[in-house]
Design a protein around this nucleic acid. Structure first.
Lengths: 140, 140
DNA sequence: ATTGTGTATGCAGAAATTTCTATATAGCGA
DNA sequence: TCGCTATATAGAAATTTCTGCATACACAAT
């Protein structure tokens, strides 16, 4: 039986808006760091740090695909409990596209690029959408 | 739909060993402050403070019985979510006496006094402070 | 009024967390 | 190789939380 201290530890990991949203996103699909950064509208180092916290506690795992690092829920008892808690506090699916990857402007990962049918082109919304990331504008 | 911030707020309330144990106890039965203080082996002001935190957020409610204040899970959506989370992280009942009150040495509340079959009876507790119970333990 | 008991609250130092900036590492293509 | 991109990490400041302690409050009995 897990002690209250351990249980509180798991809850504390989730008791953070960003980490909670990250877990909520990863519950549906694996995503890369830049994707999370774009969705959460937070600077990449900040997202990376929160991911490191979750990874250190065994809630999520990472795997590389080229230069991209994809994160997903781990296959551990703690992660299973976290998923169960997520189902309790947010039974409904998060994204509009149920159970899938949601393309987002500002992410260049292959997973995002593969989906051609995106309503909003990155170029149109990038200027106003992500002022947190240093903008890399490619001149022709 | 509740935001991640609100959800994280609820989780943070529970992400604390003492508060978690308090909720776990109150899930089974209403208890007075002195009872919780004795069970948790923590000074009364400390317990009261944690109870105040939970009460302020609407997770628990209190009602007076004489000088005693009994706390129990509130009848709010937040409390219902908390109970659901408790069932996830600790499905089994906490106390040996399932679904009931557990007498504890150091608590003089009428609820504890009513149960006569206790292994350790505090010798110096002849303080007849139970206005609701006619049967007082009185020394001649 | 005074005493005693149960409970609530305010406060201060300590400890932990949040969040940012700056910088380092690593893979890929030219 | 170099430059670019994606990610990780270190450090630090601001903020919040934890926790023990003293004391105040409420109420009943003396």
């Amino acid at each position: 039986m897990t002690s209250y201290r351990e249980q509180a530890r798991l809850l504390r990991l989730m008791a953070h808006p960003m980490r909670l949203e990250i877990l909520s996103i990863l519950r549906e699909a694996d995503e890369c760091v830049c994707h999370l950064s774009a969705v959460l509208k937070k600077p990449q180092p900040y997202v990376s740090q929160q991911l490191a916290v979750l990874r250190k506690e065994g809630l999520i795992t990472d795997h590389n695909e080229g230069t991209y690092v994809f994160y997903g829920l781990a296959d551990t008892p703690a992660a299973a409990q976290a998923a169960a808690i997520l189902r309790v506090i947010a039974p409904e699916a998060r994204s509009s596209v149920a159970g899938g990857h949601r393309r987002v402007a500002g992410c260049n990962c292959p997973k995002c690029e593969a989906e051609g049918t995106c309503s909003s082109r990155p170029a149109a919304t990038q200027a106003s959408n992500s002022p947190l990331q240093p903008e890399r504008v490619r001149l022709p």
